[in-house]
Design a binder for these strands. Sequence first.
RNA 1: GGCCCCAUGGUCAAGUGGUUAAGACACCGCCCUUUCAAGGCGGUAACCCGGGUUCGAAUCCCGGUGGGGUCACCA
Length: 480
Amino acid sequence: MVRVRFAPSPTGPLHIGGARSALFNYLFARKNNGVFIVRIEDTDLERSSRESEKNILESLKWLGITWDEGIEVGGENGPYRQTERLNLYQKYARKLIEEGFAYYCFCTEEELEEERKNLLAKGEMPRYLGKCRNLTPAEKEKYLAEGRKPTVRFKVPAGRTIVINDLVRGVVTFETDGIGDFIIVKSDGIPTYNFAVVIDDVTMGITHVLRGEEHLSNTPRQILIYEALGFKIPEFAHISLILGKDRTKMSKRHGATSVENYREKGYLPEALVNFLALLGWSPGTEEEIFTMEQLIERFSLDRVAKNPAIFDLDKLNWINGYYIRNSELSRIVELSLPYFQSCGYVSNNPTDEEMRKLTKVVEATREYVVTLSELPEHAAIFYQKELIFEEEAKTFLAEEETRNILRKIADKIKEIPGFEEEEIKGFLKKLPKELGVGGKKVYMPLRAALTGKTHGPELYQVMAILGPEEAERRIKNLFN
RNA sequence: GGCCCCAUGGUCAAGUGGUUAAGACACCGCCCUUUCAAGGCGGUAACCCGGGUUCGAAUCCCGGUGGGGUCACCA
């Protein structure tokens, strides 16, 4: 049985890279009929917050990533917040100390900083030299008497080679000589990441650890802990990072990096999922658009790329536009409603009439946008009381001849039966012949008169949305 | 700097010893449309460098170079 997990630390909103890790874990679990667990790694007391935790969980749900076991939903291996499992870590830390795999370290941060500086000054690698490895009971007593609070360090064996058979990278080896004794329990009794992650993964029965590549160099430390405790080592798969345009790890300075940023900007969850899936994974076919179900069906670890991927906003935009244009209209209307409300085009408790109009407006304008938030600006022509005329539009309305033509059109508008799109289309088509002029004198001036612009949705759509009275009013308004 | 990972068009990426080196985004052109977009068709554009191995390397090996990650009482 495959059991995987996503274990974010709640120190900020869900990052785009974290979202992809979560997605890959989710896809892998579903594909293999396994279990997907979400656990919160909140051992950094300084930076962790419940708000961040909430944000992360909400972002995951928004993306359509659900979990079978973990925070909120519970399960047999809980609790799923590390700060609630402290006694568990203490138990194993004691065991490691008793069996000689770990020891108390009384060095203060100042002393460690001093050591670091000295090594650096000598041109050597800053690392912990193992000063407290063999403290005598008397020395320990002395430190304790001074009121020092010890940390617990893992005793890294010398001269060993740690081999990882990574599911995406293949065989990766590390020498233990390059690893100094590292802290597994902080002086306040809270475990560090490298320790807690092992205990949790073991006690939660994790079979595959699928995570970002930044964790690859931590893996040998973790393996050492697995071995010391006699635990079975899970499979590892390290996914390469998502880089910004400047080819460094995506961070705040690259602009929008959190899922909520994209949500606010009007990206659809299915578009973001689709895009993220394609970033670092390839179906091996020429298809590009996938539903979550299709992704689950096709996902496999051996099609995950080893090289880092640059976040390509253009492609996300294309995918998002695709979904906006091709999804069920009612869904797009529902999702875009808040954007229309916040700019005042639609009231907070929309009437049926408002919703009918909004539906037609969205249908006509969704062809032009990349995100939902752009919809209102394209829809402005349907909601503004006073039109704003572009310079180019004015030139179409300047000539006396076209003004006369428009006057005639205005009077004919009420003759259109039903005023549905089909009828309007027919009306527009016959217009030039009826008026005895070329189409050039009709369509562009009419568009300019109706919208104040030279670009926009099909004229018949524009008129159908405005309705006969408003259409007539707008034209006649030009002559007042 | 030590250690680790990576290297196909501008970007995402197929490719696993013999291919005209796919496809998508972006870009350019044409068509469609009396607008723009969308859509359709077409085009420009790539195997980091140097050595091997081999009849034959984008594909295998070694070495450079470049990029990234990591070296915390952060995760």
